[in-house]
């Protein structure tokens, strides 16, 4: 997937190109901190020293490898071509955000509304907003898709939160 569009060689390095290195270094830093904390503060009788050493050593390894291999100069030309565009057209960017919001909404609604209503909501919004179907079409598809889900889960005995629709 990395070969579709030729990239401009003089691309300026943005904060984005440093992001992977920074995220990995953050993870490494947290691990080193946790490792030291376990080694220094916990009662030796708890036999936690190995637990500390393990994350400490891994944290150091991660810090070294990411500082070495994730420098933007070292990683140029390895990613998806899409990464070079300023995150696509605005409408696509909106689609991505809506999609992420839908997963978050599903997590938030599953416990309270139950899996049926949460599923109906997510599917409907996706069809209407991202796929751009009309009201009628979206409604019909929503009903059909969720009917299949409900039948599948009920038949296979999978227990999902019933939420307010329980009976």
């Amino acid at each position: 997937m990395a070969t579709t569009t030729p990239r401009s060689p003089s691309r300026a390095r943005t904060l984005g190109s440093y992001a992977p290195m920074l995220v990995l270094l953050l993870l490494a830093g947290l691990s080193i901190e946790e490792g030291l904390r376990l080694l220094l503060t916990v009662d030796p009788a708890a036999q936690a020293d190995m637990a500390g050493w393990y994350v400490l050593v891994l944290g150091v390894v991660l810090a070294v490898t990411s500082a070495f291999a994730e420098r933007p100069s070292a990683t140029e030309g390895t990613g998806d071509s899409a990464g070079d565009q300023p995150a696509g057209a605005p409408s696509r960017r909106r689609d991505l955000l809506v999609c992420l919001a839908l997963v978050a909404a599903y997590a938030a609604l599953l416990g309270t509304l139950g899996y049926v209503l949460a599923g109906v909501g997510v599917v409907f919004v996706f069809l209407r907003v991202i796929s751009g179907y009309g009201w009628v079409r979206s409604t019909v598809y929503t009903i059909v898709i969720n009917a299949v889900f409900v039948a599948l889960f009920e038949l296979s005995g999978v227990v999902l939160p019933a939420g307010i629709l329980r009976f």
């Binding site: 599903y106 899996y115 796929s131 598809y141 898709i145 889900f149 999978v158």
Partner: peptide, 24 residues
């Protein structure tokens, strides 16, 4: 079409993530 498949996949992902440990 992906317009229809997309929401199905998304709900499947949500359900799959949940059912592994019954955890929101």
């Amino acid at each position: 079409p992906y317009g229809v498949l997309g929401p199905v996949i998304l709900v499947c992902c949500g359900v799959g993530a949940y059912t592994a440990r019954n955890s929101v």
